[in-house]
Design a protein around this nucleic acid. Structure first.
Lengths: 213, 213
DNA sequence: CGGGATCCCTTAGGATACTG
DNA sequence: CAGTATCCTAAGGGATCCCG
């Protein structure tokens, strides 16, 4: 038996053999946002050693989780349909880990792709269905995300675009999303800075994106 | 920063820092079935080195996932409420990994706790709600499980007890649960051996417990 | 005998430099 | 830009031993 196998005939075990190695699910997390080039993955995972990234990409390809696709004189990595089925796993992990996030530390970075997946984790489609379509432009540290909520559909894009509410916030936005801070208090405390649009829309944002703490 | 941290402020990252180490989620899987002693965990995870089991238990305790509870001149480990919230993660992993399970290999074991969690993963409460309460006695390799389905409620116990259907099966029961084999064909092929009760109840079992392959 | 701790060795992973 | 190559540390595997 291969040394890294668990020696059990069990779905959890099999899953962990395929995507349980260090860094693997973080690569999947970023690829759930969209296809990425090697360098983009390396940028989104600043602490991953290059040899490990290369090794994981090969393993995940062999496992049928992702695909190497030639793309205009370079290569992109994209999830296979089977790889995309890991989304519930990543979302469940994100929701669980959210509760254990303390205060951000100086050396911790926030990446656009991780924020995008965090928004997907926090998205409450039932709540959104009852609200009018709304576009937000969220400046979250280095990530500028255009967030469009239309009924039960959520799209997050990494670009500037027209929005009903334009705001910026730091890691403390976690306290708004968890409900620890009301929208009013978040604005008053400077956790959220409204750059354009009505303050009321911050409340709508907090209703739409919520995660228990 | 601790060497094993990922350096990102992100829920997925935090979760993987807490339960992403090798073996950790398998310990959680077994504890989701019920409190277990050190030796029981070691038996359910035959290939885990003793020092690793001891290390993981300490780490998971420090992470607030489990608790060490004195219990009649010995100790049991049980999940905290926060640890029990990992159930969706384990079930999602189990469902995903199920699809990648090939044929069982000789050195792969089946443990009662992993089978119990597999049944929970496959349980379709919507289907069960429309069926009469049913008790099954399932002999799956080394695991003798009493499975009681009553409306949307499922209980799996590790003991012999009265049942409407008593059957035994090997790892190939996977082909029944995935729908690859109908109940009739599973019986005809000897994948499922009915020891007592009506063959029809095998079909009910397959309706109640289903996982896509 | 259950519940670990210790030892030694192998291998995965981290840091950094280098190449097609 | 997209990876390899190298060197080193630390974690995991396996067996054994210990202690109440």
């Amino acid at each position: 038996m291969a040394a890294r196998e668990y020696g059990q005939y069990c779905g959890v075990t099999r899953a962990l053999e395929l995507v349980g190695e260090r860094w693997a699910l973080l690569i999947v997390r970023d690829l759930l946002v969209g296809p990425r080039r090697y360098g983009e993955l390396a940028t989104g995972l600043p602490r991953i050693p290059s040899n490990i990234l290369a090794a994981r990409l090969k393993e995940l390809q062999a496992a049928g989780v992702l695909r190497r696709v030639p793309h205009s004189r370079t290569v992109v990595y994209e999830l296979t349909p089977y790889g995309r089925e890991l989304e519930p796993v990543v979302l469940a992990l994100g929701a669980w880990g959210f509760k254990a996030m303390g205060e951000p530390r100086a050396e911790q970075v926030i990446t656009p792709d991780s924020m995008t997946m965090a928004l997907r984790t926090a998205f409450r489609s039932e709540v959104a269905s009852a609200l009018p379509p709304t576009a937000y432009m969220a400046h979250l540290g280095p990530a500028a995300l255009h967030v469009r909520v239309d009924g039960a559909a959520l799209t997050v894009a990494r670009r500037e675009a027209r929005a009903d509410l334009v705001f910026s916030a730091g890691p403390d936005i976690r306290r708004l999303v968890s409900g620890e801070l009301s929208a009013d208090r978040a604005i008053a405390a400077g956790v959220v800075q409204v750059l354009r649009g009505s303050d009321d829309l911050v409340g709508r944002f907090a209703d739409t994106f919520h995660l228990a703490a």
